[in-house]
């Protein structure tokens, strides 16, 4: 994993300040979306080789949730944005 993450609010900061949550590419289904959609949302995760969007929390910084797009193979970080700016994932 990258040594530094460029927080859009705080600038490049050491990765130890952040906490990873997981796949940011999934969207929380509507309450009545059905069992399959909810099962997929809660339990199923891809483990891609290459570009991957994840939720990271700047826990020891501005405490904003971020969407970090990184390459799981090269560890390059392609983009970091505030999760709220990504549009609601609800």
């Amino acid at each position: 994993m990258a040594s530094l993450i460029a927080c859009p609010h705080c600038g490049p900061r050491p990765k130890e300040e952040f906490t990873v949550r997981g796949d940011a590419g999934i969207t929380r289904p509507a309450p009545d979306a059905g069992e399959d959609a909810w099962h997929a949302y809660v339990y199923l995760r891809d483990n891609p080789r290459g570009r991957h969007k994840e939720h990271w929390h700047h826990t020891s910084g501005c405490r904003r949730w971020l969407v970090v797009e990184r390459d799981t193979m090269t560890h390059t970080i392609h983009a970091v944005s505030d999760a709220s700016a990504e549009g609601a994932t609800a």
């Binding site: 929390h57 405490r63 949730w65 709220s84 609601a88 609800a90």
Partner: peptide, 14 residues
């Protein structure tokens, strides 16, 4: 606290 922030910022930013 982390959970509340996630819900507010990522799930329901509106």
């Amino acid at each position: 606290m982390n959970h509340l922030e996630f819900c507010a910022q990522a799930l329901w930013p509106d």
